[in-house]
Amino acid sequence: MNSISQAIRRVWAGPWIPPDQGRMPYFWLLSLGYMFWKYAYVHPSAVEAAMLVLTFVVFIPLYCASYWARGWEVLACMLGGCLIGIAWVRWNVGASTFFIFACAMAAQIMHVRRAMLAIGGVIAIGVLTSLLIEPMQMRFMFLMPILTVSLPVGIGSFMDARLRRSRQALVRKQEEVEHMATIAERERISRDLHDLLGHSLSLIALKAELARKLVHRDAEACAREIGDIETSARQTLAEVRAAVTGYRHSGLAHALANARASLAAADVELCEQVERINLLPATEHVLALALREAVTNVVRHAGARRCTLSLFVEEGSVVLRVLDDGSRLRTHADLRHGNGLSGMQERAAALGGKLALRVGTGLALELRVPAGGAA
């Protein structure tokens, strides 16, 4: 009963009808005019006029509440409409309109079978109610609207409500998809920023350390290192700005150049075996970021003296391998899958590729992504 009282209070305070229903429910109230056909020929008594006003005062809030009702409340509203029709049947055959309204209320029932049974029940009650009318002509006038209009109105109202619920569900699904896309974009930007800043700041830190060592021994070399630091900082700033706007496409050639500079600054020998491959922009972007992260890990964590880097096409896949002879990683337990490795795996999976790590005499990283348009 709390739900019905809440619905009635809502009707009193407004809006009377749920806003998504539009204006048509108010228009259908004009069907109550069917009750006035009798009075075109017969003048109503004072009691009958008062009962007519009371009927509208009771029925209109009941009708509006039916749009907010759910579950058994819908059946209660339908039964209320039928009872009003039964109460009027001996005095006004226009009371058949209340049975039509009751069929329309079945639109709020979610299940097709239950809605059809409820509509059939209302029509059956209307047919049985017609037996209370003695003149056959009046009985026919009462039954005709119920038999010809109630079923189409009930089915039409149910289908319209079902279509409206489907549209609302579709809108919610689209909102969820947009929300998930926003989250995925934020995660992509955070991964890219981590990879960019991790690599570039490591390079800047190494060169700053080298410049500090050279400041008293070789001023010219120190100046070159400081110049490289300035250049790297400007490049990093430009790349971060591009990443934030979502339009960054990191070139593989640029990533290779940075890898050479980072490894050289860390005094790690580089053995390079890179084939010239025409790559799709998305594939090149993933490989470039993976190369950045892999080289950053070599410089920061491996303690390596030698690094082998290879890029080639094998069995329809572009393969990037980075091997180092570092001694700090002895077992897979020593690997910490932080944001960098997780970002590699997620980007590779998005292209249908995979990332493999092997710990032996150093760390071997292999990234495979579909070649697609590679040649």
Rank of each mutant, 00 (worst) to 15 (best):
Q6F: 05
A13L: 14
P15A: 05
Q21M: 11
G22V: 01
F27I: 11
W37E: 12
H43D: 07
A49P: 05
V57D: 07
V57F: 11
V58M: 13
C64D: 07
A69N: 10
A69V: 06
G71M: 06
L75E: 07
C77N: 06
M78K: 02
C82A: 14
I84M: 02
G85C: 09
A95C: 09
T97A: 12
F98Q: 06
F101T: 04
F101A: 13
A102L: 09
A107S: 15
M110W: 02
H111W: 05
H111V: 09
V112F: 15
R113K: 14
L117N: 04
A118E: 06
I119C: 01
A124T: 13
V127R: 00
I133V: 14
E134Q: 12
L143Q: 11
M144Q: 14
I146W: 07
M159I: 14
R165I: 00
S166M: 12
R167C: 01
Q174F: 02
H179Y: 10
A181C: 02
I183S: 03
A184V: 06
R186E: 15
R186Q: 15
S190Q: 15
D192R: 15
D195I: 02
H199Q: 09
L201Q: 15
A205E: 13
A205C: 00
E209F: 04
L210E: 13
A211Q: 08
R212F: 05
V215M: 11
A221F: 02
C222S: 15
A223W: 07
I229A: 04
I229D: 10
R234F: 03
A238I: 00
E239L: 13
R241I: 03
A242I: 01
A242E: 14
A242D: 11
T245A: 09
H249C: 09
V274C: 07
L291Q: 12
L291S: 10
A294H: 14
V295D: 10
T296I: 00
N297I: 04
A304P: 01
R305Q: 15
L309N: 06
F312T: 07
G316H: 04
S317K: 12
V318N: 01
A333K: 09
D334E: 05
R336N: 13
H337Y: 10
Q345W: 08
A349Q: 13
A349S: 12
G353Y: 05
G353A: 04
L363Q: 04
V369P: 04
A375W: 03
